[in-house]
Design a protein around this nucleic acid. Sequence first.
DNA 1: GCGTCTTGCTACAGATATTGTAGCGTATCG
DNA 2: CGATACGCTACAATATCTGTAGCAAGACGC
Lengths: 110, 110
Amino acid sequence: MPKPPSAARKRSVHGSRTGRPIMALLDLLGRRWTLRIIWELRDGALTSRALRTVCDQASPTILQTRLTELREAGFVELVSGEGYALTALGRELIETFLPLHRFAERWSNT
Amino acid sequence: MPKPPSAARKRSVHGSRTGRPIMALLDLLGRRWTLRIIWELRDGALTSRALRTVCDQASPTILQTRLTELREAGFVELVSGEGYALTALGRELIETFLPLHRFAERWSNT
DNA sequence: GCGTCTTGCTACAGATATTGTAGCGTATCG
DNA sequence: CGATACGCTACAATATCTGTAGCAAGACGC
């Protein structure tokens, strides 16, 4: 029962005003720390505090917000005793942009 | 480790505090409208106003900000007479997450 | 029981980032 | 000339994010 974060601009995670799922997905991923969180979970579960550590001490406020969004989207789940982990869907998602790693390496040399 | 003021983030697109290029990339892409802009340019150049139209009337302020960042990153360029277009590097980037489209379609049915 | 951990999670105020509207200067057409 | 479109910016009003502090619940040894 997390309080509704100012419902005005809150878009349902799946639905998009345009009806194009890709827009809803890009919107979700295009929020600060979202991509980073998914990325850091690629190798296994992390507790909320471990996640905070690897995420450069990001504030727990925004981390919780993003984790809630990602859980509602079905990409992340809270595993009792382990912490946060990617769901099957979440692993599918990150596999689509794992090649980003190699791209980033080449990009940094330009 | 203290976070650098926002000006520093804008200046060094490549540099990352951690030295991990992927983090700099995820940081850049994890800003509002960035992913969306790249996505909308996937089929060819768009003028700044056309871009605004397809981007749900996003404010020109933030569009300019993102376009500047993307130009500094080398993903987007301003082609005289055509508008904004992806560079070769930018096309390379979007190809790594074009599969997201199909993923989004399946995701919306869950 | 007690105290001390760690966990997930929240409150709060101050600092940033984004929005929406309006408009500039330039160029290109008729 | 007037009309239009371009890239781009100023400005104040919002919305979002940060950083610090702290809560309640559970697990551990004592």
